[in-house]
């Protein structure tokens, strides 16, 4: 769910997902099976610890990589990069990213695009970032990814363990399949008919 309009009533839209249910005249109609159902047999375990030693860095042409260095020096434990398109940050930032990873900082990446999934195997820049140790976060929003990173670093300080947790789908925060109708206006398509 994302706030998509500054003022309209229907500002909240599911993005990279379809609505779970429709409420009309106080009646709920479920629209999908794909959600976590209430299960009384499961025992609730609260894991409320969050780490505040994380940073969100949005990449833009001209971003000063010293910003990344500064976060590392300040003792930041996780950096969430907001990359362009399929998941890119320009080459001139690579040294700073490399340095962060070397200092045990968990560096993960989500896309600035609203819709879709990062795929860092398509272009050289993406592949280079992967080999630097940057963790691609599928179809998560940077906002969601940041909060997840805070929670993950609240659970563990081990970068390896943190990486594993980041890539584990815990509460439907990412989905392995993206549907064609998960974009824009209902039923509209860019394809000519």
């Amino acid at each position: 769910m994302r706030k998509c309009h500054t003022s309209r009533r229907d500002t909240f839209k599911p993005v990279n997902a379809t609505p779970i249910a429709r409420v009309k005249n106080n009646e709920i109609t479920m629209l999908t099976d794909d959600y976590q159902k209430r299960d009384a047999t499961k025992k609730l375990v609260l894991k409320p610890k969050f780490s505040e030693e994380v940073a969100l860095v949005k990449f833009y042409p001209g971003l000063d990589p010293a910003v990344i260095d500064w976060y590392v020096e300040k003792g930041c434990k996780g950096i969430l990069l907001e990359g362009t398109g399929l998941g890119h940050v320009s080459k001139y930032c690579f040294d700073a990213i490399k340095n962060a990873v070397k200092h045990g900082v968990v560096v993960a990446l989500a896309s600035q695009c609203i819709w879709g999934r990062v795929n860092m195997n398509v272009y050289d820049t993406g592949r280079d970032l992967l080999s630097l140790g940057v963790i691609p976060l599928e179809d998560m929003f940077p906002e969601t990814a940041l909060v997840k990173l805070m929670w993950v670093l609240g659970q563990t300080r081990d970068p390896k363990e943190a990486k594993k947790l980041l890539k584990t789908n815990i509460a439907g925060e990412f989905s392995p399949r993206t549907m064609p109708d998960e974009i824009g206006v209902d039923g509209e398509s860019a394809d000519e008919r």
């Binding site: 879709g116 999934r117 795929n119 195997n121 993206t178 064609p180």
Partner: peptide, 18 residues
């Protein structure tokens, strides 16, 4: 297509996964 059996990858609207 239908939702149960295809996603954006089959439509060539998303790169292939590994």
């Amino acid at each position: 297509a239908n939702r149960a059996t295809s996603c954006l990858v089959e439509m060539d609207e998303e790169p292939p996964h590994p």
